[in-house]
Amino acid sequence: MAKVPVQFTLNGSEKAEFIESGTTLLHALRDKIGDTSPKGGCHQGTCGACSVIIDGELRLSCLTLAETCSGADIKTTAGLAEGGVLHPLQRAFLDAFATQCGFCTPGMIMAAKVLLDRTPNPSREDVVEALSGNICRCTGYEPIVQAVLTAARANSQNAA
């Protein structure tokens, strides 16, 4: 089958691949490029485990065709820590015991990051709304909501 070239920025690095037309971004990231931080839970856009950030927007990589991402700026949880220092959201998830099996965690963190980038001081309702597309079957939602609120507070204190 004919291959299609795609080129995008992933967590600040230039990536280029030849992919089969119709390949999802999730498949391209995980199996071609080797960033396995987005997870495939349902492959039908319902669980949120594959969430990534494309040009500042939260996207489900299982429903995004890789070939539509040429020239895009893509961010995943694997690229969040800078210089070995955890992002405040990662720190807050650790401290708040907001992970159990961990499978939903990278997607949750992506959803939370887009929220905090836009709404630095979210209400609890804002957080619940922002995470509503991400399923945690271990049902650890409360610590996750608390972690996002804690990270928001840490951010605003740093900014002040």
Binding site: D31, T36, S37, P38, K39, A78, L89, T99, T105, P106
Partner: peptide, 19 residues
């Protein structure tokens, strides 16, 4: 938890992360 640092950084290796 010992496994949390892997979870929050996306480094935890689940079986399907092997290719």
């Amino acid at each position: 938890r010992l496994d949390s640092p892997g979870h929050v950084t996306g480094k935890t290796a689940y079986f399907a992360d092997r290719n």
